[in-house]
Design a protein around this nucleic acid. Sequence first.
DNA 1: TTTGACCTTCACATTAGTGGCAAGGTGCAC
DNA 2: GTGCACCTTGCCACTAATGTGAAGGTCAAA
Lengths: 129, 129
Amino acid sequence: MRIGELSKQTGVATRMLRYYEEQGLITPRRLDNGYRVYDDYLVDRVRKIRGLIDSGIPTRIVSCILPCLGHPDSIVAENAEPGLFDLLEAERDRMSEKIDFLTQNRDAITEYLRALERAASQPMGTKAG
Amino acid sequence: MRIGELSKQTGVATRMLRYYEEQGLITPRRLDNGYRVYDDYLVDRVRKIRGLIDSGIPTRIVSCILPCLGHPDSIVAENAEPGLFDLLEAERDRMSEKIDFLTQNRDAITEYLRALERAASQPMGTKAG
DNA sequence: TTTGACCTTCACATTAGTGGCAAGGTGCAC
DNA sequence: GTGCACCTTGCCACTAATGTGAAGGTCAAA
């Protein structure tokens, strides 16, 4: 598919799709006329990229962890550059921290919302003060 | 405590502490000489702010959800401005999405790391191809 | 053949979050 | 009093992510 279609399917602006390409996150093929063509599997990939960026993972890191996703067992190993392993471990830990953090705070919000609801469904003057 | 001390305790640069103040996230009192003074409870608050920002929540939103945190039941209700409730619900949902997303991807990384370890502890030429 | 929807690159602007520095006040310690 | 560590405000700059618009190419359909 071409960039407009991918944009529609993912909800990501074409501008951003080109930006991700510039950052090395996706590498669409090109038609003779220069148009970018995206394989179907890239829809999922772009969604992942967006989710990660939205979660505060910079593109630099996203590009490192992308190889971890989607390939069940294939491309592993081989490219065992030193440092990558440690980087991935560190990033995984950072993600765990974020998860804990978000969970904690989301639960607090939920709690707060419940309290608001309780307050709203009450006579508003009952035992106030 | 003053800003330097808070910075040390939270690991957040003084520059950022002033920025958060500018964004309305914290409002330290002032000494006669103009120095900012922070109450102890702000240490926790600043850590929360950092965590949220690191998780991709913009300061604008952080300022909305901060009231949800830390107050067990007290300041609730009263200020039931319309729209706030919906915003909080939406933000909570967004956080849930992020949590799911991060969890998924973190697990994929973990899986990948495991595969790398397995590959590394193997004769490297065994059944390769 | 012209129109219109799509695509291309280039470039400039903006926003958020940061970092850094300059110029100056405060206050303790020697 | 001098020095030093801390604080103040203000400003400039940078990066990442994003918006936007110009100038132009492609292609199908009317």
